[in-house]
C-alpha cells in the first residue's frame, strides 16, 4: 500500500488536513505496540481495550483541534498519552496490577511484606492490651497457670512443678481460665480480632 511508505509526520499532517484514511494507517502501524504496552501494565484485555480507545480518542481530538505540535515523534507522544491513562486507571480505584494465578510461578508467593502496617499494628497492640486486662480479672490460680503457659511458654510439667499441683489440676485450671475468658468476652461483646 502506498500509504505505508509515508512517514508518521506526513500521515499526521494529511489527517489534520482532512484525510481520514491517514488515521487508519497510523492506527494499523502502531496498534500492536501501543496495545501491548497498555496490556503489560494492566494485565486485563477489557481494560486494555478501553485505555487503547481512550488514548486514540484523545489523539483524534488533539489533532482535530489543531493542538498537536510536531515537537517529538508521533508514537512517543501516543505512548505518553497511553501511559498517563494507565496511571489514571490505577488512581481511579487505587488498584494495583493484578497477578492472576495461571499456574505459573509467582514471585509474590514466596516474598511478602510480613510487617503489619501502622493501623494493624495499633489494632494488634490494643487487642493485646485488652487481653492482658481480661486476664487480670481471672481467679488467681487460673491466671497463674495461663500466664505461665501462654506468656512464659512453660510446659504443664514445669507449671506443675512450680505451683506444686498435679499436671491434671494445672490442665483443669488452664481450661477454666479459657472458659472464663470466653465468657467475659462474649458477655461484654469484646472483639479481639485484628
Amino acid at each position: 500500500m502506498k500509504n505505508y511508505t509515508l512517514t508518521d509526520a506526513v500521515l499526521v499532517n494529511n489527517y489534520i488536513k482532512g484525510e481520514e484514511s491517514a488515521l487508519s494507517v497510523l492506527i494499523e502501524r502502531h496498534k500492536q505496540r501501543i496495545y501491548s504496552f497498555i496490556y503489560s501494565k494492566v494485565f486485563d484485555r477489557d481494560v486494555s481495550e478501553d485505555i487503547f480507545q481512550d488514548t486514540f480518542i484523545k489523539v483524534i481530538r488533539t489533532l482535530k483541534n489543531g493542538k498537536y505540535n510536531e515537537e517529538g515523534k508521533f508514537l512517543p507522544w501516543v505512548m505518553r498519552i497511553a501511559h498517563n491513562l494507565v496511571i489514571d486507571h490505577f488512581r481511579k480505584g487505587n488498584r494495583m496490577p493484578k497477578f492472576e494465578d495461571n499456574g505459573e510461578f509467582s514471585i509474590f508467593s514466596v516474598i511478602s511484606d510480613g510487617n503489619l502496617n501502622a493501623e494493624r499494628r495499633i489494632i494488634k497492640d490494643q487487642v493485646e492490651e485488652d487481653l492482658r486486662n481480661l486476664i487480670q480479672e481471672l481467679p488467681e490460680d487460673q491466671k497463674e497457670v495461663l500466664v505461665m503457659r501462654m506468656y512464659k511458654d512453660m510446659s504443664f510439667k514445669e507449671i506443675s512443678d512450680k505451683t506444686g499441683v498435679s499436671i491434671n489440676t494445672a490442665l483443669g485450671r488452664m481450661r477454666y481460665a479459657l472458659i472464663n475468658l470466653r465468657k467475659v468476652i462474649e458477655k461484654n461483646n469484646i472483639v479481639l480480632t485484628n
Binding site: L23, S24, I27, K31, E49, Q53, K64
Partner: peptide, 28 residues
C-alpha cells in the same frame, strides 16, 4: 518469555472501527 501468546497483542477490530467512525463524525 513465559507468555508467548501475549507477544502479538492487538486491539479488537471493533475498537479500531469505532475509532475510525468517531474520527469521521467529529468536526471542530
Amino acid at each position: 518469555s513465559s507468555k508467548k501468546e501475549e507477544n502479538h497483542l492487538v486491539p479488537n477490530r471493533r475498537t479500531i472501527d469505532f475509532l475510525l467512525s468517531y474520527s469521521k463524525s467529529l468536526k471542530v
